[in-house]
């Protein structure tokens, strides 16, 4: 596995936020590939290789999923529920990245087996820090089964 870039699937409807995440991974030295989809339906299509993602070359299996909660078409929580109910997909760490600090959202996310819950900071430095730490933790330190 070493040397091979870890694929991160970013599910984010806000183009600007997707850009922020992208930039952060670019500046950090962790080798990775960022795949971005804009809604819940697209995320599920990607993971199940359906429709436009039916070609495996376009949809490599992600090592981590970064998931926003408020998503068009299919809600983030619904996406989470589906993938965590699927024995094949449930092993992929799913990290929630959202602007919501609502307690109910956190509880719902964790009860749907979210592996982590991150709140987008309203500050560029902090956002950068968060993404760096995320990178180290999930991409460098965290051990995953093959």
């Amino acid at each position: 596995m070493k040397g091979e870039a870890i694929v991160i699937l970013l599910v984010e409807d806000d183009e600007a936020h997707a850009e922020i995440v992208r930039r952060n991974f670019e500046t950090s030295r962790i080798a990775n590939r960022l795949m971005h989809v804009a809604d819940g339906q697209a995320a599920l299509d990607y993971l199940y290789r359906r429709n436009e993602f039916s070609d495996p070359a376009n949809s490599p299996r992600p090592g981590v999923i970064l998931l926003d909660l408020r998503l068009p078409k299919v809600d983030g929580l619904e996406v989470l529920r589906i993938i965590k109910a699927d024995p094949n997909l449930s092993v992929i760490p799913a990290v929630v990245l959202t602007t919501s600090q609502a307690e109910t959202d956190m509880i719902k996310a964790y009860s749907n087996h979210a592996n982590s819950y991150l709140v987008k900071p309203v500050d560029s430095v902090k956002f950068t820090e968060l993404m760096e730490t995320f990178g180290y933790y999930w991409l460098a330190w965290n051990q995953k089964p093959n």
Binding site: A16, F127, T128
Partner: peptide
């Protein structure tokens, strides 16, 4: 409402 705020502040940093 929070989303655009996050965007604005982060990109101001950039």
């Amino acid at each position: 409402l929070k989303s655009p705020v996050v965007t604005v502040r982060t990109f101001l940093g950039y």
